[in-house]
């Protein structure tokens, strides 16, 4: 079961909290620290970490879509 992550790069302030929480899913651009989404539709096993990353983002950049059923 997969789920979908969306990011709004224009809001990103480069805090990097997402990378600390879920380095499999997020990275930061070398030149300005803006978020890079590594997996748009990751495996459900990473769902909780994705939720944590989204919750800790100080600029509400990350949106997690779980669909009708929670993934995992």
């Amino acid at each position: 079961m997969k789920f979908r992550i969306r990011i709004d790069e224009s809001l990103c302030i480069g805090a990097g909290r997402c990378v600390v929480q879920a380095p499999e899913l997020f990275d930061q651009r070398e030149e300005d620290g803006i978020v890079i989404l590594l997996q748009e539709t990751p495996d459900g096993a990473l769902y909780d970490r994705a939720i944590r990353a989204a919750a800790q983002c100080p600029a509400r950049v990350i949106e997690i879509e779980s669909g009708d059923k929670p993934a995992g």
């Binding site: 302030i13 480069g14 990097g16 600390v20 930061q28 300005d32 620290g33």
Partner: peptide, 17 residues
Amino acid sequence: HGHYRRMLTKEFTAKRM
């Protein structure tokens, strides 16, 4: 604000820290 801040964000990325 963003114009100036972006000149510094690369110095404070999670990996750098």
